[in-house]
Amino acid sequence: MIKVYDRTNKSYEEELVAGKGYLEWIYGSPIGKNITELIIKKRLFSKLYGRFCDTKLSANKIEPFVDKFSIDMTITKKGINEFTSFNDFFTRELTLESRPINKDKNILIAPGDGRLIAYENIDLENIIQIKGLTYSLKKLINKDDIANNYQNGTCLILRLAPTDYHRFHFVDSGVPCESHFINGHYYSVNPIALKTIPKLFCENKREWSLFKSDNFNDILYIEVGATCVGSIIQTYSPNIRVTRGNEKGYFKFGGSTTILFFKKDCVKIDDDICEQSKLGFECKVALGEKIGTKL
Rank of each mutant, 00 (worst) to 15 (best):
H185G: 11
G112P: 12
N152L: 15
H169S: 11
I222Q: 10
I128N: 01
I117T: 14
G153H: 08
A110L: 08
V224D: 00
N126C: 11
D164C: 07
A147R: 01
L108K: 01
F211D: 08
R206I: 04
F170V: 04
L220E: 03
V224M: 08
N142F: 03
N183A: 11
L133G: 13
I219G: 00
T154F: 05
A193F: 08
K139G: 05
L200C: 09
Y187A: 05
N217K: 13
N215Q: 12
R206H: 02
Y150M: 06
I117H: 04
F201P: 00
E120C: 13
P111M: 00
I182G: 05
A226L: 03
D214R: 12
L220D: 08
K138P: 09
I117K: 05
N126F: 09
N126E: 07
G225D: 14
I219P: 00
K105R: 11
H180I: 12
T227I: 07
E203F: 02
I146F: 02
G174M: 06
L124H: 06
I127C: 13
A147M: 02
I197A: 02
N126T: 13
N142Q: 15
D145M: 08
I128G: 04
L200E: 07
P162A: 06
T196S: 09
N149M: 14
I182C: 15
K195T: 10
N121M: 07
N183Y: 02
A193M: 02
H180R: 15
C177R: 14
G114S: 03
N142C: 11
L140C: 13
G153I: 01
A110F: 15
F168Q: 10
F201E: 00
I182L: 15
G112M: 10
G114W: 01
D164S: 14
L158F: 00
S173W: 09
F170D: 01
P198H: 03
S188M: 04
G153V: 03
I117V: 06
Y221K: 03
N190E: 03
K205N: 12
G184P: 12
F216A: 06
N204R: 08
G153E: 03
V189F: 14
T163M: 01
L108S: 04
N215I: 05
I182Q: 11
D218Y: 14
I197L: 06
I109W: 06
Y150I: 04
D214I: 15
S188P: 12
C228P: 15
S179P: 11
L133R: 06
L137V: 03
H185D: 15
V189R: 13
L124K: 09
L200Q: 04
Y135C: 04
L194S: 03
L137A: 01
N152M: 12
K195S: 11
G174W: 08
L200I: 10
I182S: 11
G153A: 02
Y186P: 15
K131Q: 05
S188L: 02
N217M: 13
N204M: 00
S136G: 03
D144L: 01
C177H: 14
E125V: 00
K139V: 04
E223Y: 13
V171H: 14
I122C: 05
A118C: 08
W208M: 13
P176C: 07
N190S: 07
G132R: 00
Y186S: 12
K138A: 01
P198E: 01
P191N: 15
K138I: 03
G114A: 05
S173G: 07
